[in-house]
Simulated assay, not measured.
Amino acid sequence: MSYLVPVTGEGGRVSEVLARLARVDDPELDESVLDLGFVTGVGVDDAGAVDIGFRLPTYWCAANFAFLMADDMRREVASLPWVGRIRLELGDHMYAETINRAMASGQSFQEAFAEEADGNLEAVRHIFALKAFQRRQLAVLNHLSGAGHDEAAILSLSIGGLRSVDLRPEGARLVARYLARRSLVGPAGDADPAFVNERGDAVTPASFAAHRRDLRRVTVNVEFNGALCRGLLAARFGEALPEPAREPTLLDFVRGRAGGRPIPA
């Protein structure tokens, strides 16, 4: 886990809080706020009060993204039956006071920002959830191809069939993450096609090449933003860039160039 200061409180309850926070993703980057290093501390007292500190890569990170993450953290932790008061504190951000006050009082984004609120927050959430769906789909397609499955067999898979494919643990994890977003674009029963486009239409051999190019474009943009955010966070707080946890991304390119060493294969 990537929280930055020692947690306080009884270990079992702290672990429960951390498990809930691990389920909260940055809406743009589709990565856990814990893995990104955004959580700066967690405290739990005997009465079930929870304190959570978090930070963002820059002072001016978008208010809607900051609010979404704060609200998702609050909701996830509040779902634990023993939790009483939650105090969530965003630090060193241009809208920290507004967001922290909203979290304490249960205000919505519109209530907290009034005339400054720009657009529907749920619409923003949907746009980036769709990008996450596309990125996760490409990860599964690449894994299946790398495991030796041919294109026709992959595209013929139903959701139930995809679940039953014998994959390494990493492949099973990618499938589970992808299927968690599959219902975003249409029916997601076991008999429904595993691989569909953003409109919910099944991907066919004829459309596959263009579809995969679209997925790659989305993925490159997301990974570039992720690399940028990690770099900004590390520079802002004087920390080392994290080592890659999975397959090489643009972050590895940034690290390799900066360090004058080869990019990992």
Results as ranks from 00 to 15, higher is better:
residue 176 A to C: 04
residue 245 A to L: 14
residue 259 G to V: 02
residue 125 R to G: 02
residue 211 H to K: 00
residue 159 I to K: 09
residue 211 H to R: 01
residue 212 R to P: 02
residue 250 L to D: 01
residue 80 L to M: 04
residue 260 G to S: 09
residue 37 G to M: 03
residue 36 L to Y: 04
residue 182 R to G: 03
residue 191 A to D: 14
residue 253 F to T: 14
residue 237 F to D: 15
residue 166 D to H: 14
residue 6 P to E: 11
residue 53 G to Y: 03
residue 49 A to Q: 13
residue 234 A to C: 12
residue 206 A to C: 02
residue 78 A to P: 04
residue 12 G to H: 08
residue 118 D to Y: 07
residue 255 R to C: 14
residue 263 I to R: 15
residue 51 D to H: 15
residue 68 L to P: 00
residue 22 A to I: 01
residue 40 T to Y: 11
residue 108 S to D: 04
residue 217 R to W: 04
residue 185 V to I: 13
residue 119 G to M: 06
residue 19 A to H: 12
residue 219 T to S: 15
residue 33 V to W: 02
residue 108 S to I: 02
residue 119 G to V: 04
residue 71 D to T: 10
residue 265 A to Q: 12
residue 151 E to I: 05
residue 157 L to V: 10
residue 235 A to H: 10
residue 84 G to C: 01
residue 87 R to G: 11
residue 173 R to T: 15
residue 137 Q to W: 03
residue 12 G to D: 14
residue 12 G to W: 05
residue 114 A to H: 10
residue 148 G to C: 05
residue 175 V to D: 01
residue 223 E to T: 11
residue 102 A to P: 08
residue 231 G to V: 01
residue 210 A to I: 03
residue 97 E to W: 10
residue 27 P to Y: 00
residue 20 R to F: 02
residue 66 A to G: 07
residue 89 E to I: 11
residue 188 A to K: 00
residue 46 D to L: 11
residue 174 L to E: 05
residue 220 V to P: 00
residue 59 Y to A: 08
residue 16 E to M: 13
residue 109 F to Q: 01
residue 191 A to N: 15
residue 63 A to Q: 09
residue 245 A to C: 07
residue 107 Q to V: 00
residue 98 T to L: 15
residue 256 G to M: 08
residue 182 R to F: 04
residue 211 H to I: 02
residue 106 G to E: 04
residue 151 E to L: 13
residue 31 E to Q: 15
residue 174 L to Q: 10
residue 147 A to H: 13
residue 150 D to K: 08
residue 209 A to K: 07
residue 199 R to L: 07
residue 196 V to A: 12
residue 264 P to V: 09
residue 171 G to L: 05
residue 109 F to D: 00
residue 74 R to S: 15
residue 252 D to W: 08
residue 194 A to E: 06
residue 220 V to G: 00
residue 178 Y to F: 15
residue 20 R to H: 11
residue 48 G to N: 02
residue 188 A to V: 01
residue 56 L to Y: 07
residue 139 A to C: 00
residue 131 K to R: 12
residue 2 S to H: 10
residue 127 I to R: 07
residue 76 E to I: 06
residue 126 H to T: 09
residue 138 L to Y: 03
residue 199 R to V: 06
residue 142 N to C: 09
residue 78 A to D: 11
residue 155 L to W: 05
residue 248 P to M: 06
residue 54 F to K: 07
residue 247 E to A: 11
residue 159 I to R: 14
residue 109 F to E: 01
residue 198 E to S: 08
residue 140 V to G: 05
residue 143 H to A: 14
residue 47 A to V: 15
residue 161 G to I: 12
residue 256 G to Y: 05
residue 253 F to H: 12
residue 244 P to H: 11
residue 6 P to W: 06
residue 71 D to I: 03
residue 142 N to Q: 14
residue 2 S to A: 12
residue 64 N to E: 11
residue 235 A to L: 14
residue 202 A to P: 08
residue 59 Y to M: 13
residue 38 F to K: 04
residue 176 A to G: 12
residue 222 V to G: 03
residue 76 E to C: 07
residue 23 R to P: 02
residue 137 Q to R: 11
residue 4 L to D: 08
residue 48 G to A: 04
residue 47 A to Q: 12
residue 230 R to S: 15
residue 33 V to M: 03
residue 163 R to C: 14
residue 67 F to Q: 01
residue 52 I to E: 08
residue 23 R to M: 15
residue 45 D to M: 08
residue 43 G to W: 03
residue 77 V to Y: 07
residue 84 G to S: 06
residue 232 L to Y: 05
residue 120 N to Y: 05
residue 264 P to W: 07
residue 219 T to A: 13
residue 162 L to N: 03
residue 172 A to G: 08
residue 201 D to M: 13
